[in-house]
Design a protein around this nucleic acid. Sequence first.
DNA 1: ACCTGAACACCGTTCAAGT
DNA 2: ACCTGAACACCGTTCAAGT
Lengths: 233, 233
Amino acid sequence: MSRQNPAHRENGSEDAVGRPPKFSRAQVQQAALEIVDRDGLAELTMRTVANALGTGAMTLYGHVRDRADLETLVVDAVLAGTDLPPADGDWQTHVEEICVATWEAVRRHPHAVPLVLNRRGHSPAALIVGEALAAALQRGGLDGKAQVIAFRTLLAVTVGGVEADPGPSAVPAKMGADGATRFDLAFQELLASDPTTYPALRAMLGPANALAPVDIFRETVRQAIAGIERASP
Amino acid sequence: MSRQNPAHRENGSEDAVGRPPKFSRAQVQQAALEIVDRDGLAELTMRTVANALGTGAMTLYGHVRDRADLETLVVDAVLAGTDLPPADGDWQTHVEEICVATWEAVRRHPHAVPLVLNRRGHSPAALIVGEALAAALQRGGLDGKAQVIAFRTLLAVTVGGVEADPGPSAVPAKMGADGATRFDLAFQELLASDPTTYPALRAMLGPANALAPVDIFRETVRQAIAGIERASP
DNA sequence: ACCTGAACACCGTTCAAGT
DNA sequence: ACCTGAACACCGTTCAAGT
């Protein structure tokens, strides 16, 4: 997992004569994720990560290309936590479980959500999840165009599901650029500040708050799968 | 549009004796969006926006609470560009057109996509789009739980659709924290760098690249609607 | 009331040295 | 070969003045 840049060596493999590196890229990854989970996104810094590893900021550049690479490392750690289900049973259930497992993995790290949205395309772990999803759709008999559409629908539903409701994030000590309150809360606040308009939105508030997030998400995935089946019966 | 913080006065309404403000919040919004579109996200700065308006950075704080508020202003401008369709014809087509219109509005500002993902919950313009979508679903006879699920599905598909393929962004002069290459490109690069694994993903590359982004997106919306219909016939 | 420069406490990253 | 402090060119924002 997470071998991002071939130019950076993995682990303690000292080639030639020099000293072995003080720590591995995996340790950088773990330290970064811990900081994000514990202190929030705004605290993720070259300096804070280096400090957690007991070195100076510049030492990180032996393991990480730049700040974007560090962020990718965090995203990769989050997505690597996806508990992919075995490929048995009907393909519909299999697809559903893959999406829910991915959603749950991201939800375990609410502070990392903005990073996941922006950098999942660079994460090798995202490839593994994507491959599982694509294979499940193949197993369902979809091919070519139908498979591409279905793949994009399910990816969009999963990513969009995380984005809309990234989970209860403890208010970070220092507010990140992404804001302390997440979408749903902010949305409801906005709605509350203008109580005369938006009747259709307001009518949904009651039913929405009566449902558990995971149930809402699972149902959106089921509806997506139903739509896929109907398109390719 | 975009009255975010009641503490900040709109436009040139000088109350009492003092001098009138040199510019309006709307002008800040326009200047910020222009910078994002032209120079990319990394160039959006209190100082660059202020400079575009011919003042010092601190003057912005009369119109904007902080940097996050400035970003919300950009998001609001993007979403306010949504060309909402009239509410006639069948509700399915109406819903489809709302989603496509939203997707197109965001796609007109590819550099702003990360901002939209992170801050749409704070945008009044997002409320307007959401209300239109909710009303269309009501018109389709959905109510309570079914409406909430359908709303979340369509929102997820739209947001996720933008995220997965935010459109061709001219390489910014200075690369932003979000990276110059967008998801799809990065993903294909990653895939190409490991040509032995991920057969199911690789099998989709051909069909995927043969389809126009808008066609893919429209089809995912149609499938989502089909799934909604099946759940609430 | 509104504007604004100076200054503060940060960033990511380059550079030039250390061992 | 690997590490690292100093330094550079930035940030967002506070503060204390200006008019």
